[in-house]
Amino acid sequence: MEENGKDSGIVYHGPISSKVKKVKLLFLSTCCLLVSLGPVIAFMTSPEMNVILKGAVASSVIFLSASSTVALHWFVNPYVHKLRWQPGSDTFKVEMTSWLATYLPKIAH
C-alpha cells in the first residue's frame, strides 16, 4: 500500500512510537540479561553468604526484572503506532507493538 514512497491511507502516526519501541527493547534486553546472569552473579559473590539467601537474592532479581518488563508492556500495550484507513470500507488497520517490540497489525471496525 505504498504510493510514491509514502504510506497511503495513514490517518494517524504515533508521535513517540519509535521511543516506545526503543524502551521496550531496552527492558527486554535487560530482563534477558538479568534472568541469565542474575543467579550467576548472586552465587559468585559473597562466598560467606548462605546458599538460601543467595537463592533469594537471585529470585528477587529475576522477579523484579520480569515484573518491570511485564508492567511496561501492560502500560504501553494500547499505544497505537499507525492507524491506516482501508479504502472502500469502514475498517481501520491499527499497528500496535507486541511484547517483543514488533508491530502487530489489527483490524478495527
Score class of each variant (00 low, 15 high):
K106D: 06
Q86N: 03
V80Q: 05
A66E: 14
V57H: 06
S67I: 11
N77M: 03
P87Y: 04
G9E: 12
V40N: 00
K19L: 08
P105G: 05
P78Y: 04
K6C: 07
N4Q: 05
W99G: 15
M44R: 12
P39Y: 07
I10T: 15
G88Q: 06
T69K: 07
R84H: 11
L25C: 05
L104W: 09
S60V: 06
V76Y: 00
L33Y: 00
G5S: 08
D7I: 08
W99H: 15
V76T: 09
I107V: 08
R84I: 14
Y12L: 05
S36I: 02
I10K: 06
H73I: 11
W85P: 01
N50P: 09
W99D: 13
S65F: 00
D90H: 02
V51G: 03
S98I: 01
S46H: 04
V51W: 09
P87M: 03
P78C: 06
A66F: 13
G14K: 03
S65C: 00
N50W: 10
N77R: 14
K22S: 13
V94K: 09
G55Y: 07
L33S: 02
R84D: 04
C32K: 10
L33M: 08
A42Q: 04
S60W: 10
L34S: 07
V23C: 03
L53V: 15
I107R: 02
S17F: 07
F75Y: 04
G5Y: 03
K21R: 15
N50H: 15
L64D: 12
N50K: 14
H13D: 10
L28K: 11
K19G: 08
A66P: 13
